[in-house]
Design a protein around this nucleic acid. Structure first.
Lengths: 159, 159
DNA sequence: GCACGCATACTCGGATATCCGGTGTCCGAGTGCGTTGGG
DNA sequence: CCCAACGCACTCGGACACCGGATATCCGAGTATGCGTGC
């Protein structure tokens, strides 16, 4: 079980977008160059963020990506599910149906004890990720490295 | 991000092992037939449980697998990590190192805010899974379906 | 009758193929900008 | 000088290869059993 590395890229890119001058669109090209990532592949991840309503995209010259809403309204979970999808990591195959007393008309994803235990785990995971917004991360970074906003803008300008 | 289906097999198989007569070993063959699973592949998962110290194996005639310790001392997390491995789903690639002010001598897996957020999420997940033991699941099932122990033993006997 | 040794069948264990989703790349559709020509 | 229309360069968007890990399988190593033989 390993998460797509696109999640890390997406989170950092969204964070960087909180520091650009308000309203300015950033090309996928520059977002990729920021961390020396493959541009075409990062573009694919950004598209997923657009479909999820986290970013908005503009085509043509002076186009690019920008945050679709306030950083305080974007949770870490939003970004993760945009990339990884909404389905749980643990997919109950309902193997109990093949066991003794297994019924075809029972939804074992709800009744199976094993499935329930795993679901509780993922629920805790989601709850924790949903409790943190991009604004929280932004504030944490700025508290630790105050020059980050300026450095970020400068780096984008030089790419 | 999807978990190996072996996790579901392992959890159900361990649960079944809590219901066999004390001290009896069950062949991988029978554990697989219980839910109509591919025997050779389930065997591979059971080996992982043996390496993790959750099961003990005996070769030769009358051999098979049995629980290595009390069901109350086996957590759901133990089984999951035995199959999936101990490393986190989110692997911080430390892309900050390529950004402005990135240092080669800093461990960004500890200092990066994004990495920290993801780590907190997985910690909550682990904590939840570690809070539930096989004994808990066993009790839950027996409370809901009292005839399960008997049915399980009978099914193993008929395979 | 009993004990020992051996052959045997049985089970786990790891090495070996196959398949699928993530990774990486490319070219086409659509659009805003700059230019240029005319009024 | 101002405006409009055109061409163009630019960017996103989705379609197309490639690779590593999960899935699935098989055969060999090791062992407890059961039998046969000798005492």
């Amino acid at each position: 079980m390993q998460m797509s590395e696109g999640v890390e890229w997406a989170l950092h890119s969204c964070l960087n977008l909180t520091w650009v001058e308000d309203g300015a669109a950033v090309k996928a090209n520059r977002l990729a160059a920021f961390y020396d990532l493959p541009a075409a592949y990062l573009n694919k991840q950004l598209q997923a963020l657009v479909r999820a309503g986290i970013l908005t995209s503009t085509t043509g010259p002076r186009g690019g990506f920008r945050l679709a809403r306030d950083p305080g309204d974007i949770t870490v979970l939003d970004v993760v599910t945009a990339i990884e999808g909404t389905e749980d990591a643990f997919r109950c195959q309902e193997i109990l149906r093949q066991g003794p007393g297994g019924r075809a008309d029972v939804d074992y994803r709800r009744t199976c004890a094993v499935s329930g235990a795993m679901r509780r785990g993922e629920l805790a995971w989601r709850r924790e990720l949903a409790a943190q917004t991009l604004a929280d991360l932004k504030a944490e970074v700025e508290g630790r490295r105050p020059r980050t906003p300026e450095l970020t803008r400068r780096r984008f300008a030089s790419l």
